[in-house]
């Protein structure tokens, strides 16, 4: 394990996603300006799996919203394939923490949604919907409503819906945080398999260090407010990995040591302020 700025396999290609001097500040309800993200510089290579960890309130979810183009940064810019991001685009799909599945649509229709917006033909849509539902093992649930599914299944619907628009970049915001341990293990395996099969670039936000080490090629550690990149860890452990692997645990331990400083700092700030001033804009609904 080493601290390196770039993935060694593809140092010479153009980064898929490049964050340049990204800062974001916003007004809190009490009227003061709060700096949420402070000069973030990050390059993500094509096909790379990058995990972002940090204490809550470090702006990591907000960063995904910026990459998705749902919100502009206060300064700096997001480049995808060297093109500046000006708004949402189906080359980058965000899987929200709360999923945002459409309850008025059936599972199949949810998966189809992005393709429909693109104006894809019905036959093609149907074929792709079936393909992606098969990929996440939900073919039988095509005509169910999302509320009829378990948490893990809903998670997979969101994954299929995102993949079906065939984005180059998949942005995932603590997608497995609310799941039980077994379901999460299963979804880790599936996500790793799908990532390997589809070759997508994934930026994955989590507060779970072990999860980050288990999944990522690289783990980027954020500081507590304002969010800055504290350190990057290159995870060159062989795949497939498992959460219980000793090597995963050991590496996670090293990351956690640094994360703990930030968590302590966040607790101190919270203690001094009494309450957290405000939720991240757009991070929660």
């Amino acid at each position: 394990m080493a601290t390196l700025p770039l993935h060694p396999l593809s140092t010479n290609s153009i980064p898929k996603v490049s964050l340049q001097e990204i800062s974001l500040s916003y007004k809190t309800s009490s009227g003061q300006r709060l700096l949420a993200l402070d000069h973030i510089d990050l390059k993500v290579n094509p096909g790379e799996f990058v995990c972002i960890v940090g204490p809550s309130g470090c702006g990591k979810s907000t960063l995904l919203h910026l990459i998705a183009g749902l919100q502009p940064p206060t300064s700096g810019c997001v480049l995808v394939d060297d093109n500046r991001v000006e708004g949402p685009g189906t080359d980058r799909i965000l899987i929200f923490q709360d999923l945002g599945l459409f309850p008025w649509l059936k599972v199949g229709e949810n998966v189809e949604f992005g393709m429909k917006m693109k104006g894809m033909s019905k036959a093609e849509r149907r074929e792709k919907t079936e393909y992606y539902l098969r990929l996440v093992h939900l073919s039988q649930f095509k005509d169910s409503y999302t509320h009829q599914l378990s948490g893990g299944m809903r998670q997979r619907v969101a994954l299929a819906r995102a993949l079906a628009t065939e984005p180059d970049v998949l942005l995932m915001d603590e997608p497995f945080a609310a799941l039980d341990a077994q379901t999460r293990d299963l979804l880790h395996d599936e996500l790793e398999r799908i990532w390997a099969e589809t070759g997508r670039t994934i930026i994955f936000v989590t507060h779970n260090v072990r999860e980050a080490v288990r999944l990522g090629d690289r783990v980027v550690l954020f500081t507590f407010r304002p969010g800055r990149i504290k350190r990057e860890f290159l995870i060159d452990l062989p795949r497939p990995r498992h959460l219980e692997d000793a090597t995963v645990a050991q590496t996670a331990g090293e990351v956690l040591k640094e994360l703990r400083e930030e968590i302590n700092r966040s607790l101190e700030v919270e203690y001094n302020e009494g309450v957290r001033p405000h939720v991240e804009p757009g991070a929660e609904q």
Binding site: P88, I93, D98, G100, F102, F113, K116, T165, G282, Q285
Partner: peptide, 25 residues
Amino acid sequence: KIYSMAGRNLGASGFQLFWHVLLPA
């Protein structure tokens, strides 16, 4: 708000966003 964000994220805008997301939501 998440529905409108999810809709925009998946490529819906303008009337499409209104008809397929905002209205049913």
